Simulated assay, not measured.
Amino acid sequence: MTSHLFQLACSCYSILPTLGSGFSQGIKTSEAWAQQLQCILATAHSLLGQLYEGAETDPVIYMGPGVELNFSPLDERDPLFILRLSQRYAGLFQSLSKLLSIDVTVPVKLPVQDIIYLVCRALAVTRKKLGSAVEIMKQD
């Protein structure tokens, strides 16, 4: 699958929960939206684990309720393995961004802490580093 096609698929994936209860097998739109979000979070953490393998001092295992999306496996011997992983991650984040920005007609629960945690992990920001930055900003 080409990178462009993958990004289009990720864009389409984000709108699936809004297609109504017939498409989401009878569950409410808010539940379908929450499940979709949790699957994206679980998969993003898994991809980060692969991308950061050996670089994280304390590898993270995501314990959220989401189930990882079933991507086709990549060959770790492929010279473009890291590039392909990062493309998957970029597409997934695009999907997350679109999911968070679509106009859902019903109230949904947003797991803000889980999203912030994912963003901080992606940026390699720890509480210690964040605390130091806040202290430096207070001094200015």
Rank of each mutant, 00 (worst) to 15 (best):
M1R: 04
M1K: 04
S3E: 15
S3M: 12
S3A: 13
L5A: 14
L5S: 15
L8Q: 14
A9P: 01
A9T: 07
C10D: 05
S11K: 10
Y13H: 14
I15C: 14
I15M: 12
L16M: 15
L16Y: 09
P17V: 00
T18A: 09
T18I: 08
L19M: 11
L19C: 10
G20L: 06
S21Q: 12
Q25F: 13
G26T: 04
I27D: 00
I27M: 15
K28H: 14
T29W: 01
T29Q: 11
E31A: 12
E31C: 01
A32Y: 09
A34H: 09
A34N: 04
L37N: 06
L37F: 08
L37Q: 04
Q38Y: 13
C39H: 01
I40M: 11
L41P: 08
T43Y: 04
H45R: 01
H45K: 07
S46Q: 12
S46F: 12
S46R: 00
L47G: 00
G49D: 00
G49H: 00
G49W: 06
Q50Y: 10
Y52F: 15
A55G: 10
A55I: 07
D58F: 10
D58T: 15
D58K: 10
P59H: 03
V60F: 10
I61Y: 00
I61Q: 07
I61V: 13
I61R: 05
Y62S: 00
Y62W: 13
Y62L: 02
Y62R: 00
M63S: 11
G64D: 02
P65Y: 09
P65I: 10
G66A: 00
G66Q: 06
V67N: 09
E68F: 01
N70T: 05
F71Y: 15
S72L: 11
P73Q: 03
P73A: 00
L74S: 05
D75Y: 01
D75W: 04
R77Q: 10
D78C: 10
P79A: 09
P79V: 10
L80T: 12
F81H: 12
F81C: 05
I82M: 14
I82V: 14
R84G: 01
S86L: 04
S86V: 04
R88T: 08
Y89S: 10
A90N: 06
A90I: 08
F93D: 03
F93G: 00
L96R: 03
S97Y: 02
S97E: 04
K98G: 08
L99T: 04
L99P: 05
L99M: 03
I102A: 06
D103C: 02
D103H: 02
V104F: 02
V104M: 03
T105H: 09
T105R: 06
V106D: 08
P107S: 12
P107G: 07
K109A: 13
L110K: 03
P111R: 06
V112Y: 05
I116N: 02
Y117G: 13
Y117E: 14
L118N: 06
L118I: 03
A122L: 03
L123I: 00
L123K: 07
A124T: 07
A124E: 12
A124M: 08
A124I: 04
K128C: 06
L130N: 11
L130T: 08
L130D: 09
G131H: 08
S132E: 14
S132M: 13
S132K: 12
A133M: 05
A133Q: 06
E135S: 15
E135T: 12
I136N: 08
Q139A: 14
D140Q: 10
D140L: 14
